[in-house]
Design a binder for these strands. Structure first.
Lengths: 235, 235
DNA sequence: ACAAAAGTGTTTTTGGTACACCCATGG
DNA sequence: CCATGGGTGTACCAAAAACACTTTTGT
């Protein structure tokens, strides 16, 4: 039986992460200048190779940590990419992950500042290999995910205002929502706890800060979050 | 740069397919007796190894063909499984696919009949390695997929009756739907074309056959198919 | 005083759900 | 003639969508 295995040709396995961030206004992607290529204008997803005794998820976390210094990031597998010619150097199968981080909270911790940079989702540079395709798929998944679960919280700081939360969702779906309907729906979930503290400096009136009721959120956040009754409204 | 690649340890990559079928009454899974293991009661998904110059999707199609003789099957990638100890023989990353075939139409073409068999979704035997986990994930995906898109058609013969279609959805979701509501919703999509032909032999009255309006189906089948407004209703 | 953003309710419309009877046919 | 499954419509209810004015406060 072992022979059957031995006859097979092995190939390299990589993990690449599509890292989403939100700066309070726009949805962004964290990219790295690979430095390996001659073309210094080519950016890349954060990736690395799978090690012999490491699971895929472990590898994704490790690689993300090595690139950014971030631990305990929300990571979710998206797909595997394996066209034979996707990496011209050597045959590589890449398993991709999407990560959600909030820019403000983690910006200080990010190492390698010289070679990493946040890009607006709509203004991405040329990407390495098939990374653009990967990003497109990740955005698609982010949307379908965010419409069923209030996943956006992963991208926000501990305390956030309702207008911020709405901006995030508007950025994810690249659309606009009615303020009143949005607020009503969010508050109805019971996931939000209002504080007495107001945001200073941004608007004259100031918006109340809310925080996440993690208890509730972790229990039952499998509900129909945004209306998908008429999905034409989205996008 | 090449050195960086050369330093990495390669590993085997496999593809495994979760093959769903519908016999008009129940949702089933096609499994194969692997024959490699001593334990002859262990069944396995249909899998094979990725070849050097082959994309993942190509490999999935090829492997499926080799096992069953089926071509042009609906295949969709689900995920990659890569725990270091998932295959005790050798480190293998497996990319899994779900396939939808309709049993009646293809039953004759299936080769290797001695070593393959259809199993009721709810009465699966012990499966190899982490294949049970894979199946669970595939069912989950099938459901979420089928609730947003009328994907069930892939599992049905060319011409089908409304009761058949409903039975299929009831099998997928392991629940029952109201006949009138189900019919109304399906017809409202405009995907179904009624024929004047009636099914013979099954019921006394006989149900009209419908076929899929592929034109429409291929264009805009991204809609909220089953109600997910109250997801509690499902399951 | 005014500009800029925050906050808040009501009405309309849509779509989901529940529900029961007649129809056609083979036996 | 009757048993079996096929086919059809309506009334109710919940949730989504549309919609506009008042409040706060920094300048």
């Amino acid at each position: 039986m072992l022979n059957l295995y031995k006859q097979q040709t092995a190939c390299l396995v990589a993990v690449d992460s599509i890292i989403f961030g939100f700066d309070g206004e726009n949805l962004k992607l964290l990219l790295v200048k690979r430095g390996l290529e001659d073309d210094t204008n080519t950016w890349s997803l954060m990736g690395g190779w799978l090690k012999p005794d490491e699971g895929l998820n472990d590898a994704a976390h490790r690689v993300l940590f090595e690139h950014t210094g971030l631990r305990d990031v929300y990571l979710e597998q998206i797909a595997a990419f394996g066209n034979p010619d996707r990496d011209p150097v050597m045959r590589t199968v890449s398993v991709i992950y999407k990560a959600l981080v909030n820019i403000e909270e983690y910006n200080e911790k990010i190492s390698n500042k010289l070679t990493t940079s946040w890009f607006l989702i709509n203004e991405l540079p040329t990407l390495l290999f098939d990374h653009s395709e990967m990003v497109a798929l990740a955005i698609e998944r982010l949307r379908s995910n965010a419409s069923l679960h209030p996943i956006g919280f992963e991208l926000l700081p501990e305390k956030f205002t309702l207008p911020q939360l709405q901006k995030l969702y508007e950025a994810i779906f690249n659309t606009e929502f009615d303020k009143r309907n949005f607020t009503r729906k969010l508050l109805a979930t019971g996931f939000l706890v209002k504080t007495t503290e107001k945001q200073k400096g941004f608007s004259k009136k100031g918006a109340y800060y809310y925080y996440l009721n993690k208890e509730k959120y972790n229990n039952d956040h499998a509900f129909n979050f945004l209306s998908l009754t008429n999905p034409d409204k989205i996008l």
